[in-house]
């Protein structure tokens, strides 16, 4: 590989990727950051207002509600989704009849477009026409406002997100489990480790990287939840079930307040990066401890 040994040739080779990345990722992101400091309706000349949009968001109760909902979805989803998907991967790793079909079934929701997943769940969770309340009515239980109320909606969204993501997370865990060296597992068994001890002291520590990947991917996906909210409640009632991204969409494209919308976009990006980086730092500290 003599011809790629010089630096300028390497630079030349990476140039197309750098150009494209700069044009379609770096430039739009920086442009959005700039817009977040302006009052801009989408055309004409943006008016620079400094941190005015950020200050206004601080006074906007709907923004705080959207942030709170996003945090609720993040916590509920991570707390339930990671153990559940890992447990499923452990279960499906065993040689059980129809294991392949079961894996495909669990993965199924992951290939359904979120907008369709939302539509399906409207017919399950809707307080009036939804399947769950109809079943509950059959046993004499009063209807529950799963969606459309101001209490349960974020939890309902978490549930749907878990349903649609569990197959994806399970598949990554399953792939990780397949890569575990058999001799280590065998050695631990010879040393008399029980199934639980193998899981606790061998499997999980060796899967640390996989856990980190799944967690970061889920965090970024949770910060991008939009279609589920759009279909289930449209962000209502009165923005009570907005997530940060759905509220950003409302502010930017419905209200046509591009500067304010871009300020929310910047906050989403920063929060997503902080949470992901924070988790990775914790995971790294755990590995070196």
């Amino acid at each position: 590989m003599i011809w790629v040994s010089s630096r300028w040739k390497i630079l030349l080779m990476v140039a197309p990727a750098v150009v494209l990345f700069t044009m379609f990722v770096v430039y739009p992101v920086l442009y959005s950051v700039w817009f977040s400091f302006t009052k801009f309706q989408g055309f004409g000349t943006p008016e620079f207002i400094g941190f005015g949009n950020y200050a206004a968001l601080g006074q906007d109760p709907f923004f705080w509600q959207a942030l709170q909902n996003t945090v609720v979805i993040l916590v509920v989803s991570l707390v339930l989704l990671i153990p559940l998907s890992f447990a499923l991967a452990l279960l499906l790793r065993r040689k059980i009849p129809g294991g392949g079909a079961l894996r495909a079934l669990v993965f199924g929701p992951a290939i359904i477009a979120p907008i369709l997943a939302g539509l399906i769940w409207v017919f399950i969770l809707d307080p009036k026409i939804g399947l769950i309340n109809r079943l509950l009515a059959g046993i004499g239980v009063a209807p529950v406002q799963w969606i459309g109320g101001d209490t349960l909606t974020p939890y309902a969204i978490s549930l749907v997100f878990i349903w649609s993501s569990i197959g994806f997370a399970m598949t990554i865990f399953y792939a990780g489990l397949q890569l575990l060296p058999g001799d280590v597992m065998e050695a631990s068994a010879l040393d008399g480790a029980t199934g639980w001890q193998q899981l606790r002291f061998v499997t999980i520590p060796m899967m640390r990287e996989t856990f980190a990947i799944v967690t970061v991917l889920l965090i970024t996906n949770i910060f991008k939840i939009f279609e589920l909210v759009y279909m289930l409640t449209g962000g209502g009632p009165v923005h009570r079930s907005e997530t940060l991204v759905s509220y950003m969409y409302f502010v930017t494209f419905t209200n046509q307040q591009y500067g304010s919308g871009m300020a929310i976009a910047v906050i989403v990006t920063v929060l997503g990066a902080i949470v992901s980086a924070g988790y990775l730092a914790l995971a790294r500290r755990g590995r070196t401890a």
């Binding site: 809707d126 307080p127 009036k128 026409i129 209502g236």
Partner: peptide, 9 residues
């Protein structure tokens, strides 16, 4: 109003 006015389009 309908009881599902929030979720109804």
């Amino acid at each position: 109003f309908p009881t599902n006015v929030s979720t109804q389009t």
